[in-house]
């Protein structure tokens, strides 16, 4: 299996605060890695580094053999557009676009024609079971539906790596279960996943490996046998 993500001694400091204190980590293709740890241990910062949303103070981040530290803002944007899919705890959907256009947006930014983008978005919404909600605005969707829309958007450009930041954190247990199933299904068809979560159930259900963080360092790793 090829290495999709490689972090070498990554440090991130915000003023006097150290969020990451020398993290080294590898994620291989097809893996589902859960990053766990207490609040403030640096989980989200780690995810931001992999997604190219933030830059390390020192160390290097390679994703798909791309050294993110060498990319300017435009190239980072293009990297995110083509290589990364992001799922957020609070969905981060655009409130003034209906579900279909929220999903299609990711492809339209690449220059896809509107009808092509909408067709692909509709297929994804259909696969995720919410095609009938395509013209509904986020405010009128349930939490689970919003997160499915967010997942569809993340998958729109067929990314090699899917990153999820507390994807079930804002959902009730039933919706959380649905999202877990969805992520599991995705991984089982070969989608590489990095999930940041507090949720042990999510980790054990979806991840093949758990990386524990504490005080900005990797405190441990364990492989999981999935049911």
């Amino acid at each position: 299996m090829t290495t999709v993500v490689r972090l070498d001694n990554v440090r991130k400091e915000y003023g006097d605060t150290t969020a990451l204190a020398g993290v080294s980590l590898e994620v291989r293709s097809g893996e589902a890695v859960a990053v766990m740890g207490p609040s403030g241990c640096g989980k989200s910062t780690l995810l931001n580094m992999i997604a190219g949303l933030d830059r390390p103070t020192s160390g290097s981040v390679h994703v798909h053999d791309e050294d993110l530290g060498r990319l300017n803002e435009t190239k980072l944007a293009l990297f995110r557009r083509h290589r990364i899919g992001m799922i957020f705890q609070f969905f981060n959907l655009l409130d003034d676009l209906p579900a279909l256009d929220n999903v299609a947006l990711a492809a339209q930014l690449t220059g896809s024609r509107v009808d092509t983008a909408r067709q692909r978005a509709l297929e994804l919404l259909d696969e995720l079971g919410i095609a009938d909600r395509r013209n509904v605005y986020p405010a009128a969707l349930s939490g689970g539906e919003r997160q499915r829309v967010a997942v569809a958007r993340a998958l729109m450009n067929r990314p090699g790596l899917l990153l999820a930041d507390e994807p079930t954190g804002a959902l009730d247990s039933r919706a959380g279960e649905q999202v877990m199933d969805l992520l599991l299904d995705l991984n089982q068809i070969g989608q590489t996943l990095v999930i940041v979560t507090h949720d042990e159930r999510l980790a054990t259900r979806c991840a093949s490996r758990v990386v524990s963080l504490a005080d900005g360092r990797v405190a441990g790793e364990r492989a999981l046998e999935r049911a």
């Binding site: 803002e73 995110r80 557009r81 992001m86 947006l105 990711a106």
Partner: peptide
């Protein structure tokens, strides 16, 4: 932030 996260360039 969302738009940039899904690949909107500067």
């Amino acid at each position: 932030g969302t738009l940039k996260s899904i690949g909107m360039t500067p």
